[in-house]
Each structure stands twice: as C-alpha cells, then as structure tokens.
Design a protein around this nucleic acid. Structure first.
Length: 840
RNA sequence: GCCGAAGUGGCGGAAUUGGCAGACGCAGCAGACUCAAAAUCUGCCGCCCUUAAAAGCGUGCCGGUUCGAGUCCGGCCUUCGGCACCA
C-alpha cells in the first residue's frame, strides 16, 4: 500500500500533463544508443527478416522523400521485430559520384571531405528521426574498406569474361564530362544533370549484362512480391524478340549481308536492303562504287551521324536514304533487291541491316514510296482482298494468308513463319535467333570520385589486372580539380605511372573509374557482413540474411539500380558466393512527396525541410503524418495543417493516458472477463478489433494510413469513455496494447508513455495478439432495402441465420408500412449484413 | 503509336470477397470552458429541395450484367508514368 502510494506520488510528479517531444525524443535517442538497442546478430535459431531502404546519395541534407522512405522501412522493421523475427535493418551511403567532384571544382573542397561532412550531417538527421538502424553495419561506398571489394568484384567479372574494353560509339554528357550507360540516358538527356547527351567514339569498359538477358527476363516470374509495373518496365527494357537471322548474297561486292527479322513470313516480299550508316559494309561499298557515288554515300552518312540521337530515333522523322547501285539476292526466291543506306536503321540493334518489305512494314512502305522502290504484296487478310494499287499504307495486322510466296502460298501466316524458318535452317542460310534491346552496361567514367578500375596497361604484357593483394587501388589525395579538364586521375603522374605486376616494367594505370551504380549493385550484401576484410562478405552470413525480404525505394530505379543489382546477384550466384537468384524478394515503390501539386524542388520554392518539421513538432509527428497522409505507393501531398493534426493526435494520446494514469497504474495484468459491463465489453471489443486491423494493415497490406486511422479510432473510443467508470485492469490492457501498436509509428512517445506504466523497452516487447472472440460484436445493425434502396436499419443478434433475419426485417414497422399494397417477389438475405426485399 | 497506373465531398483519403459510399484526418460551422482569446473538450459537416421531416441525386462519361456496382464486363474521356524507327 505504502509502495503504491509512493509510486503514485512519484508518477504524478513525473507525468507532466504536457507532451514535450523535443525533450523526450532526445532523451530516448540517447538511451537507445547507449544501450545498443538495435544491434543485430546472426542467430540461426531465429527466423530472419531483412528490411532495407535504398541508401541515399550524401547530398548534404535529408529531404522529405528520404523521411518517407525511412519511415516506411522503420515501421516494418520494428513491427517484424515485435513479431519475433531477427531483423536486419541497416543504412549506408552511396557516396561516390559527381556532386562531390563539382563541389571540389567550385569550392575547392576535396570530394572526400565534402562527402564525409555530408554523411555526418545526414547520419545525425537520420538519428534524429529515431530510426532503428544497426549503425555498426553502416556501409559507405567511397571508403577504402568498401571500394576495395568493389574492385575485387570487378576483377571477378573480368576473370569470368564479363568485363571487357572495346571501342564504341557511346553516350557522352559534356556537362558531367563523362560517358553514360544506356539506362542513364532519359529522353536523350543525362539522368543526373538533364543536359543533352552526345555521341562519342571511345574505348570503354563494359559489363556483359547481355549474357544474362534471358535469365533477367525469365526470373522476373520469380518476383511475385514486385509491383507488376516495375516488372513490365524491366521486360520492355530487356526487349526480347524472336525471329530469323539470314544472309543475302551480294555477288557484285563478293559479300554477304546478315539481316534479322521477326516477320520471316514476309520474306518473299523483300525488294530492298536497308543498311545503317554505321554498317561495316558501307565502307566496302564506297570502295567498290564510282567516285561520285561514293562521295554521295559518304556525305549522307556524315550528315546522318551528325544528327542528335533524338532526331535520329524519333519515329516520325522523315525516312531518307541513298541507293548504292548494288544489289543483293533474296535466298528464298532468288529475286534481286536494291541495297540502300538509310537513316532509319539502328546500327546497334540486330545486325544493323534490315530487309525492306514495303507492303508489310509501315517504315519500309514510306521509304519505298518516296524512292519508287518496287512493292510485292505477300499477305492477304482473311476477310477482304487487298490490291497493291489501292493500298495507302502497309498491311501490318498479324493475321492473314500468304501469296506471291512460292510453295508457301495459301498458308496461314503463323504456320508459314515456322515453315519459312525451317526452310532457311535446312538450306543453311539462316537460323532462328532471339534479339534483345538491352545493351551491355558501359561502366567507365572519366571522373575522379569513383572506384578506380583496377587494370594496368603494359606495353609488353598488355591489359593486366592489379593483383588481389594490392587492392584497393587507392584514389590519390593530392590532385587538381578543374572544370572541363581531363579527369584528375589521368592528370596525376603519381597515379598513372606504375610497374607492371607481371613483368615489373614501366606501365600505366587505367584512369577511368567505375559507374557508381556498380557500388550500389552489391551494398545490400555487404550489410550482412560489413567488417569482413577477407572477402566482400561471408557466404554463411549472406545466405542467412539475404535476400532482402522487403526493399523500399522510389520508382525511378525501376530499371537502373534494380536491374544492375539483379545482374550482380546472378553473377555472384554462378560464382558460388551466394545461394539465391534474386536479391529483393519483395519490392515496395513509394510515391513522391509533393507540394502544391508538384515535386518539391528548389526552383519551384515548395521545399519543406524535414529538419524544420522535426524541430517544431518532433520526429514522431513527422513520421506519423507521412505515414497517415497517403497510402505508401501513391504520391503524398504535403500539408502543414495535416502535420498539425498528427501532432494533435499524439498530444491526445498523451493526455488521455495522463487522464487515466491512476487507473492504469493500479490495474492488474489480468481480470475476469465475465464481470465486464456493457460499456467495458464494447471498449474491449474496440481494442481487439483495432489490434486485428493494425496487424493486417501493417503486416499484410502495407496500408499504414488505415492502420494509423484505426489507432485514432481507438483513442477516440477512450475519450468517449473518459467520464465512465471503467475497470482499471481493462484500461491497463488498452494502454499497453495501444502503446505497443503505436511503437513502430511513433517510437519515442510510445517508449516514454510505456516507461510510466510498464517495465523494459516498448521496442523489446511482443506484438499484441487479439482475442478473436472479443472482436465479434454481439449485435449487428443490418440494412433493410426495398428494391435496392435503404429503407430501414434493424438490430439483430450476431450469428443470426438467414431466415430469422429475413423475418425480422419483414416485421419491422416501417418496412411493413412501405410494403402495404405491394407484392413481395423475392427476398435476398445476407446474414449480419442486409436484407433486400424485391417488391412490385 | 504501344504498355501501365489513376480519376470518390471544399481538401488528403476509406470502403480488404459485388452488400449502409464518404471511416480517419484537415478545413469549416456551432456549443462548453474563459473577463476575453488561444489551447482543450463536445456536436454538426456530399449535393439538391426544405422551417423541419421525407423524397430525389451522387464515386470521370456512356451502356451492360445483377435483387444490389466505387468494386465485374464493353465502349470512351482526362491526367500522370514508362517505352518509342528495335525490323
């Protein structure tokens, strides 16, 4: 008794009526850090759960998109921990990249210093959000102990024949002063700085992602937990098509020209051959042609190549070409076809040469019409008859019967397609083949702030890998950063000049660094074993933690990072370094945070700073608002008043527990259910329905907004009961479960209030279980409709059968009155829901 | 052009399996408390007509299926995203 009284006095003193987030958040962040609450270790006896948010680029400050990303991840991580999983929830930085180097050029600050200062600041902000990261696992890609392994992995790819250097026409961003991969060119512009991308011929390093095109495509089927649209985007990006590659002889040139087609059924309609200006045969043709003709062709090629990529590849630009004067032979029917050099054939796709079938391809139709090239109709639709003279465009429907095709005449086109491919294979001039839109991944960057490519060039030994024990190839510290100049690495004698690892003679280092997307293609594996100095990661650790159970990030990486990471995982699996095919089992693509209908950006002046919001209302409010305001996948409209509302809700939680503090404190941990009165039963029902709803919304549906709203409803129910006499033990149960449910969303206030009534940390407790019996209401309000219109509502007991409910509905006075003079035709009765009376 | 997503009050959104459209929150209105204001607590809050009640209308548009449609089917419209001369 005395103890209780003392405790009551102590609490009354400590439990201030006012909610002060600034104080309690700082307090608990310190305690959590001191007690290492979020430390994670492998435990083979426990089921693991790997929750991961895409790590950020250290730009300097967190923005609202980060806050949203981390809030979602943190709710999941905390929820799964409470459900009993051994949860891995790490954070790091994608720390190489252009902005650091630009800062060096503009402000004379070394990229490393700039980056690490930004990391320190952003880490502080992340900590102020109260996120449950195991900070000990932080991976920073620009640190030597990380990029050493990035280089090691490059060497692995090299040894497997998946990294190679070749001269190629590549995408060049002048502003960034470097090349770009195909995936990094968006609408002909640089993905990072938005400036126009040009073409340049350079010798560059590539990763052979095309070797994995088929598996990357096929394994999309394994990704049941990915949004359909991301899978479709990847599928389109890989762009597999199946068809026939065959050769046409060009006797005058003594050459053969290979073409690829997905429409072998139209092969008898070939009247010309279209070459890309970059096609190797063009040079030979020029050599064989008259001086005049050669000059004409060369001029055309030069003019075409001078055009920008967007101009060249937009579908509606005029199709133009030059007739070479030479012919080739269609191997199917021996007919002659004119050889043209054209502006509409892509050098990089297929063979860079296309068979021209004007009647069944719209582009060929336009081209042939313009230059008066003959047309042969080879497909007739099933209904109706096409006449060449009456046609104004190509017949491109995928249905019809062959004509003018020798022995294939009369054959249905899909059958003919197969038969014609058989013929080409049997006669040995063609082969079935798949083609992909996907190109090899250009990984060289002519920049300083990236992982150096660990290759040395020796005049005697050629291209030599830096021996494993010499890794990492470190970035030299003492270099000059100048705008527009060559890469600082190429400029650094200290870096370039070295000894050949093979023969010891004088040699030069590769001065290109790796695309930062390589660094981010394996970081999720490093988290599993972040301090390993023998290997990038230990197989046992990686196989325990990975694959990532839930990955969370923006849709902007639908192709880029997500495709590259999948590629890496497959290569590492083939190498036996890990045992799974796909890195991310489930993917959640969060929507953007927008304000006034537009993405937050400096130029629009609609940026809301997380720092300011957290300073004013606390992290719990910021997190709660962002989770409550919209479903995670949809864009979220920022609302200052909405934030105010979330703050108000947390203050309401605080006050109602303060109001009931005495009762909660003296309540017991168990009580007699049978002794509860009607109000109490109702309140307990509300609690258990809330637990059920929140458990499903967070654990299965990722509907955090509705989870929060049902917690709000429970709090409203407590307010409705505040003047009633409620069993203290029931109040204790409600307070306990309410705080447990609130803990993943608003970890600080939950911990603070928990500490006032219960022992230990709220974040070390089990997720509450609901009592299914309590969630069932004893009575149900059902709707009575006449002809589908709601006419009355009646109360029936729960579990009522169809018939009884129907009788009660028909007996309701209001319904009886409305039915007088009418004939009841039919009655539909759904127990516990509604009765619909069809009457005439 | 092709592929995909979305369209619900003044606003953000809810309705999970075809069964009360608008939960929860914001804004607004009213009341209580206060000398007063703020804060807080309570109530009201789709449109239309109305003193009120009742009726009617209502989930982008047109049609269909069904006792019953925001939800299913067919045809459109608008917005956003991806791809786009890929043979």
């Amino acid at each position: 008794m005395k103890q209780r009284l003392e405790r009551f006095i102590k609490m009354a003193k400590e439990f201030d009526e006012k909610y002060t987030p600034a104080e309690i958040e700082k307090k608990w962040q310190k305690i959590w850090e001191e007690q290492d609450v979020y430390k994670t270790e492998r435990d083979d006896t426990k089921k693991k759960y790997y929750a991961l948010e895409m790590f950020p680029y250290p730009s300097g400050k967190l923005h609202m998109g980060h806050v949203r990303n981390y809030s979602i991840g943190d709710v999941l991580a905390r929820f799964k921990t409470m459900e009993g999983y051994n949860v891995l929830h790490p954070m790091g930085f994608d720390a190489f990249g252009m902005p650091a180097e630009n800062a060096a050029i503009e402000h004379g600050i070394h990229p490393s210093k700039w980056t690490h200062e930004n990391i320190a600041n952003m880490t502080r902000q992340q900590k102020e959000m109260g996120l449950s990261y195991d900070w000990d696992r932080q991976a920073i890609t620009c640190n030597e102990d990380y990029y050493r392994w990035t280089q090691w992995l490059f060497e692995l790819f090299y040894k497997k024949g998946l990294a190679y250097k070749k001269a190629a026409t590549v995408n060049w961003c002048d502003k960034c002063g470097t090349v770009l991969a195909n995936e990094q060119v968006v609408d002909g512009k640089c993905w990072r700085c938005d400036s126009e991308v040009a073409k340049k011929d350079l010798a560059q390093w590539f990763f052979k992602i095309t070797d994995y095109a088929d598996r990357l495509l096929q394994d999309l089927a394994l990704l049941k937990g990915w949004p359909e649209r991301v899978k479709i985007m990847q599928e389109n990006w890989i762009g597999k098509s199946e068809g026939l590659e065959f050769v046409l002889k060009a006797p005058e040139l003594g050459e053969e020209i290979a073409v690829y087609t997905t429409r072998p059924d139209t092969a008898f309609g070939v009247t010309f051959m279209a070459l890309a200006p970059e096609h190797p045969l063009v040079e030979k043709i020029c050599a064989a042609a008259s001086e005049e003709k050669a000059a004409e062709i060369k001029k055309f090629c030069e003019e075409t190549r001078a055009k920008s990529d967007i101009e060249r590849t937009s579908g509606d630009s005029e199709k133009e070409g030059v007739f070479t004067g030479f012919y080739c032979e269609n191997p199917f029917n021996g007919k002659k076809a004119q050889i043209w050099v054209t502006n509409y054939v892509l050098a990089e796709y297929g063979t860079g040469a296309v068979m021209g079938v004007p009647t069944e391809d719209q582009r060929d139709w336009m081209f042939a019409t313009k230059y008066n090239i003959p047309k042969i109709l080879t497909i007739q639709p099933k209904d109706g008859e096409l006449k060449l003279e009456e046609m104004t465009e190509a017949y491109v429907e995928k249905e019809g019967v062959l004509i003018n095709s020798g022995k294939f005449d009369g054959m249905e086109m899909h059958e003919a397609m197969n038969k014609i491919m058989d013929e080409a294979e049997n006669l040995g001039f063609g082969k079935r083949r798949a083609n992909y839109r996907l190109r090899d991944w250009l990984i060289s960057r002519q920049r300083y702030w990236g992982a150096p490519i660990p290759v040395i060039y020796c005049d005697k030994c050629g291209e030599v890998l830096v021996p494993e024990e010499d890794l990492p190839v470190k970035l030299p510290q003492d270099v000059k950063f100048e705008s527009g100049a060559v890469s600082p690495l190429a400029d650094s004698k200290e870096f370039v000049e070295c000894a050949c690892p093979k023969c010891g003679g004088a040699a030069r280092r590769e001065t290109d660094t790796m695309d930062t997307f390589i660094c981010s293609s394996w970081y999720y594996l490093r988290y599993a074993d972040p301090h390993n100095d023998k290997m990038p990661f230990d197989k046992k650790e990686v196989n325990y933690w990975a694959p990532v159970d839930q990955y969370i990030g923006g849709i902007e990486h639908a192709i880029l990072h997500l495709l590259y990471s999948r590629f890496f995982t497959k290569v590492l699996k083939d190498e036996g370094l890990l045992d799974f095919d796909e890195p991310f089992t489930n993917l959640l693509t969060q929507g953007m945070v927008i304000k006034d209908g537009a993405k937050m950006s400096k130029s629009k002046g609609n940026v809301v700073s997380p720092e300011e919001i957290i300073g004013k209302y606390g992290a719990d409010t910021a997190r709660l608002f962002i989770l409550f305001a919209a479903p995670v996948e949809r864009d979220l409209e920022w609302s200052d008043q909405g934030v105010e509302g979330s703050y108000r809700f947390l203050a309401r939680v605080w006050r109602i527990l303060h109001h009931f503090a005495d009762a909660i404190d003296k309540g017991a941990d168990s009580y007699d259910l049978a002794a509860l009165n009607a109000d109490e039963k109702e309140l307990r029902g509300a609690l258990h329905r809330t637990i059920k709803k929140v458990t499903e919304d967070v654990g299965e549906r990722f509907m955090f907004n509705t989870a929060v709203s049902s917690i709000m409803e429970l709090v409203n129910a407590l307010y409705a009961a505040q003047d009633k006499e409620i069993n203290p033990s029931l109040l204790r149960e409600i307070a306990k479960d309410l705080l447990l449910m609130l803990a993943p969303f608003a970890p600080h206030i939950a911990e603070e209030l928990w500490s006032k009534f219960f022992a230990g940390s709220v974040h070390k407790q089990s997720w509450p279980k609901y009592d299914a019996a309590a969630t069932v209401k004893t009575t149900a309000e059902i709707v009575v409709q006449i002809n589908g219109k709601v006419r009355d509502k009646i109360i029936v007991e729960a579990g009522i059968d169809k018939k009884a409910q129907e009788e009660q509905a028909l007996a309701a006075p209001k319904i009886k009155e409305l039915l007088t003079g009418k004939n009841v035709v039919k009655v539909i009765s759904v127990p516990g829901k509604l009765v619909n009376i069809v009457a005439k």
